[in-house]
């Protein structure tokens, strides 16, 4: 195929990237640094220091960290069990865990709202058994639950992939050289699955940091994340400049956190950015 034709084939993707990613990004940056009258200003960037915004960003970071840690703690042992199962059709295992992702994530969050609500399914069952109700709907706990439920596969899959790439004979070689089970885990399995852990952390932390839909549904307006503030600026207040300013700051936080996480990945595998 000629060079021209090959370039031609990349055309649709280039149009997509320029029209729907680069252009909007440029617009956001433009709006972030200009006032409503078009004059350059830093006031919308500085708006992050306002108490509401600062608290929302702080809560977003905090819930993002909690969600990521919970996902990691749940996913790592599960991935180890799955990778040790030696099932002939390993893709079936992956399929099982991808299955929930076939359903729209908003629907799944709405389902959780019904389950968790004051007179919802879970509380009906609990009271039926004579136990006390749990009231976590409209709290940060419910938001974290929703995030973990939604983003868990993004933690599980990269770790599972990394673990299945660890060869059995490396483990045997380590045992042969005198390593017990604990040493094998910390010296062989953990370092060799690090790239998967890093990918998982990035893929869970970034969406949970920027999430606004989950907090809206399961937080019921009581849990204000930075994503919600931005959404309100754009959709309710029509304050594009203020929304863009906060979006820009959030973008900096996302890139910084990814760079921080990637700095632990010595091998350079599984890098998402930087």
């Amino acid at each position: 195929m000629s060079k021209f034709k090959q370039q031609f084939l990349s055309g649709p993707y280039l149009i997509w990237i320029i029209g729907f990613i680069l252009l909007p990004m440029a617009m956001i940056i433009y709006y972030a640094f200009t006032g409503s009258d078009g004059t350059p200003t830093l006031q919308y960037i500085a708006a992050i220091a306002d108490e509401t915004n600062r608290k929302a960003l702080g809560l977003s970071l905090w819930l993002g960290v909690i969600c990521t840690v919970i996902c990691l703690v749940l996913a790592y042992p599960l991935a180890m069990i799955l990778s040790n199962m030696h099932i002939k059709n390993q893709s079936f295992v992956v399929f099982i865990f991808m299955l929930p992702m076939w359903m729209n994530f908003m629907l799944r969050i709405l389902a959780w709202k019904l389950l968790l609500s004051k007179n919802g399914v879970i509380n009906s069952v609990l009271t039926g058994m004579g136990l006390s109700r749990i009231n976590i709907i409209n709290t940060p706990a419910a938001v974290v639950l929703g995030m973990v439920y939604d983003f868990f596969p993004f933690m599980l899959l990269p770790i599972y992939n990394a673990l299945t790439r660890i060869r059995e004979d490396w483990i045997e070689a380590a045992a042969d050289l005198g390593a017990g089970k604990i040493t094998i885990f910390f010296k062989i399995i953990l370092p060799l699955s690090l790239s998967g852990i890093i990918s998982g952390i990035v893929m869970v932390f970034v969406p949970s940091l920027t999430s606004f839909a989950i907090s809206q549904v399961l937080g019921g307006g009581h849990v204000l994340l930075i994503g919600n503030v931005i959404e309100q600026d754009f959709m309710q207040g029509m304050q594009w400049n203020a929304g863009s300013g906060l979006s820009f700051v959030l973008m900096i936080f996302v890139i910084a956190s990814m760079a921080l996480v990637n700095s632990f990945d010595k091998e350079g595998e599984g890098t998402v950015i930087c």
């Binding site: 004979d169 045997e172 070689a173 042969d176 017990g180």
Partner: peptide, 29 residues
């Protein structure tokens, strides 16, 4: 268990640890 036996194995597939340097591999035991 293997790790308590006073013998060492040279494996068919070499089985060197890919995340370690040569010196770290040799120093493992």
């Amino acid at each position: 268990p293997a790790n308590e036996r006073k013998l060492n194995t040279v494996f068919q597939k070499y089985s060197l640890f890919p995340h370690m340097t040569i010196a770290e591999n040799i120093a493992f035991g």
